[in-house]
Simulated scan of single mutants.
Amino acid sequence: MHGSATPLSASSASAWLLVLLCAVSGAYCLLRARRAGRRTRGMAAGEAVMGFGMAAMAVPSGTGPWGPQILVAVCCGASVHALWLLRGGVHHAHHLVGTLAMVYMALSMTAGHGHARAGLPVVTGVLLLYYAGYVLLGGARLVTAGGPLSVPAGEAGPGAAGAGELVRACRLAMGTGMLAMLLSM
Score class of each variant (00 low, 15 high):
residue 91 H to F: 14
residue 127 L to N: 03
residue 122 V to E: 10
residue 80 V to P: 05
residue 26 G to T: 05
residue 90 V to P: 04
residue 74 V to I: 15
residue 89 G to D: 09
residue 182 L to G: 02
residue 94 H to K: 09
residue 141 R to T: 08
residue 121 P to K: 11
residue 63 T to F: 01
residue 6 T to E: 12
residue 149 L to R: 13
residue 90 V to F: 13
residue 118 A to D: 09
residue 83 L to T: 04
residue 75 C to H: 12
residue 66 W to K: 13
residue 61 S to I: 11
residue 40 T to I: 05
residue 164 G to Q: 01
residue 15 A to Q: 00
residue 11 S to C: 06
residue 30 L to V: 08
residue 26 G to W: 01
residue 176 T to G: 08
residue 91 H to D: 13
residue 34 R to L: 15
residue 175 G to P: 00
residue 56 A to D: 05
residue 111 A to V: 12
residue 47 E to D: 14
residue 167 V to Y: 07
residue 183 L to K: 08
residue 117 R to H: 11
residue 106 A to D: 08
residue 29 C to I: 01
residue 142 L to I: 09
residue 33 A to Y: 00
residue 91 H to K: 13
residue 55 A to R: 01
residue 113 H to A: 15
residue 102 M to V: 09
residue 107 L to E: 06
residue 23 A to C: 10
residue 103 V to M: 04
residue 7 P to V: 14
residue 126 V to E: 09
residue 4 S to Q: 14
residue 96 L to V: 02
residue 63 T to K: 04
residue 90 V to H: 10
residue 151 V to R: 06
residue 31 L to S: 11
residue 165 E to L: 11
residue 131 Y to D: 00
residue 126 V to T: 15
residue 56 A to I: 03
residue 28 Y to A: 08
residue 9 S to V: 08
residue 6 T to L: 13
residue 16 W to Y: 14
residue 90 V to G: 03
residue 84 W to K: 03
residue 109 M to R: 10
residue 32 R to G: 12
residue 21 L to P: 03
residue 59 V to A: 14
residue 16 W to E: 03
residue 166 L to W: 13
residue 36 A to R: 02
residue 102 M to D: 01
residue 19 V to Q: 05
residue 121 P to S: 14
residue 78 A to F: 00
residue 128 L to F: 06
residue 118 A to R: 11
residue 173 A to G: 02
residue 55 A to V: 08
residue 115 H to E: 06
residue 153 A to L: 13
residue 58 A to V: 05
residue 140 A to K: 12
residue 19 V to K: 03
residue 25 S to C: 15
residue 17 L to E: 08
residue 116 A to D: 07
residue 153 A to N: 07
residue 6 T to Q: 10
residue 65 P to Q: 06
residue 148 P to I: 04
residue 130 Y to E: 06
